[in-house]
Design a binder for these strands. Structure first.
Lengths: 143, 143
DNA sequence: CTATCTCGTTATCAAATGACAACTAACGAG
DNA sequence: CTCGTTAGTTGTCATTTGATAACGAGATAG
């Protein structure tokens, strides 16, 4: 097993994944949302119900706490997300999508899902099951 | 086969891939290179010998031709890449890494490869072969 | 109680990025 | 040759993003 060759495949693969993600989401534009803000909304949308603190957001989105705070404030002003504080530790602020934000993201993701379904349209159920296994395998072992 | 469930797995998977890529490359800093410029260098490095025109770069990196031109000029001034024109169509400008740029990227990628190898260290050759198949399958069918 | 630490906010600044207009040069069709 | 098109450049501007300092309020250890 040539592990360096696998590395090259890995690099090419991540580039493909990135490209595909971009294709699927490039023209998803919510009002006056910047790319970074969209990233935050997507993160919140993906984490459905689990409460997320601002520090965690900051880590995951790879931005400083002050900048995260600023962008969240902007999103709050736009009515797309809301804060609520921990009942135990009052320093902690949790953040979630507002109903409005939830609705907007759900709408956006219907478009993305439609594109995804279109892309896999011609693939048989057996092959899809195989793809699902491949995704789980990779997700467990490498990513 | 629930295709919507596959969609959700797909979304989670792309997020994981993005995160992993970020982990592997976050502290790769070449001199005074901006993130966008790094993206260009990475693209050129990945495309080894195939000549790439500025318009193609512009498409793939999802930036306008004027901005691509500007960033390439900056990279040229830093001595990291170089242009040469098509002998047939003199409007076309091809772009490639300079020897210096090639060396810098090779060095950076040795670090990335080391991290990748570390991550797959405990995985047996049989499992790796399976992973390689999974990557090829996904790359062919979905991405 | 009082340091110290954590979580978050606010303000400010510089740099990076994106968008666009105006331009040159080369090609290609008629 | 002329006109329209393609490839790329230059310049300018507003916005976005990243970095950092200074601060406040709540937790926590000694």
């Amino acid at each position: 097993m040539d592990r360096s060759e696998l590395f090259r495949d890995f690099i090419a693969f991540t580039a493909s994944v990135l490209e595909t993600k971009h294709d699927f989401t490039k023209d998803i534009r919510i009002e006056g949302i910047t790319p970074v803000q969209y990233g935050i909304l997507e993160y919140l949308f993906a984490h459905r119900d689990e409460p997320v603190t601002i520090s965690e957001m900051s880590d995951c989105q790879h931005m400083s706490l002050p900048n995260t705070s600023r962008e969240l404030r902007k999103l709050g002003e736009k009515g797309l997300c809301e804060k609520f504080s921990d009942s135990e530790d009052k320093r902690k602020q949790y953040i979630r999508l507002s109903p409005e934000g939830q609705a907007r993201m759900a709408e956006a993701f219907r478009k993305v899902e439609a594109r995804f379904l279109e892309r896999i349209r011609g693939i048989s159920d057996e092959e899809l099951a195989e793809l699902a296994r491949a995704i789980r395998l990779l997700d467990g072992k490498v990513f």
